[in-house]
Design a protein around this nucleic acid. Structure first.
Lengths: 145, 145
DNA sequence: GTGAATGCAAAACCTTTGCAACTGG
DNA sequence: CCAGTTGCAAAGGTTTTGCATTCAC
């Protein structure tokens, strides 16, 4: 909850990729706000639904666009999952994602030490993603099954 | 979304021990052989095409089935990628996957130390996936531009 | 023999694209 | 003003499903 509450500074390349300035549109702001409001890793459809509540005219394609744009500037990360649509995450700290195979929920797992694999000579690393799959405490509990 | 019912009958299959209740069909064997032959992380379509060469009657749905079954018993891992169909990998050793954003190739990166994030109390870990994204040596080279 | 797996085709689904209208800087 | 963005709708591609037939055990 200590993250940047509002994207007041989207223009001046926040997380410094290649100096691309992001044009601040109402839609992008709305999509980003939706992600910040509840850190529950929504799917595109969920982002769309939530954004629509406050901006009924917004289109699904625009949500995809906005998310892609936010990812480009480094404010948002995409989580690619097995048998499940992608989720989106505005948490920029180093962390892994835990995907429950039963209920489908995704949660953040803090990483104390970031692994540093040896890349092939000359390779350039842009991004690193750690995904854990299993059963969340609730679904793993014997009472639950 | 989760908890595919028609897969549960393969048995719990903790980690590909001998007791796996996997029914050995020609198709499953063929699909697995295809994966072992070239360790190049093929997509489902590629597996399908290669399997078809030697088993012309095999269907795409069956390839999906077989891959899912092989994953359930732990012989195969699926790699979920951004803007790219899933790839499949029969390499069971601890390793990460490097996905080149330019050419799309996926390669294995050995891990010397496996990170061990602290899971929430009661959570059960089934599998861990580390995906790196960037430019492979070839695509990162200036000459290649 | 019997339940599970296959093959085929269609459906469901997620994501991308094309284009005219609009808008942020 | 103008390039970049949106909304809409339709296309594109991947993955899943239903059902009759076939097969492994």
């Amino acid at each position: 909850m200590s993250a940047p509450s509002h994207l007041s500074d989207l223009g001046p390349a926040p997380c410094a990729e290649q100096g691309s300035a992001l044009r601040l549109t109402r839609q992008r702001r709305e999509v980003y706000d939706v992600l910040l409001e509840r850190r529950d890793h929504p799917t595109v459809q969920e982002v769309f639904a939530r954004a629509k509540e406050r901006m009924p005219k917004i289109s699904l394609a625009t949500v995809y666009n906005c998310l892609e744009a936010l990812m480009q500037v480094g404010l948002v990360r995409q989580v690619n999952l097995h048998r499940s649509p992608s989720r989106f995450c505005p948490n920029l700290s180093d962390h892994a994602h835990f995907h429950c195979a039963a209920c489908g929920q995704v949660s953040d797992i803090p990483l104390e030490a970031t692994p540093c694999p040896t890349l092939p000579d000359g390779a350039v690393l842009h991004q690193q993603e750690i995904t854990l799959r299993g059963l969340c405490p609730h679904c793993a509990s014997p009472k639950h099954s």
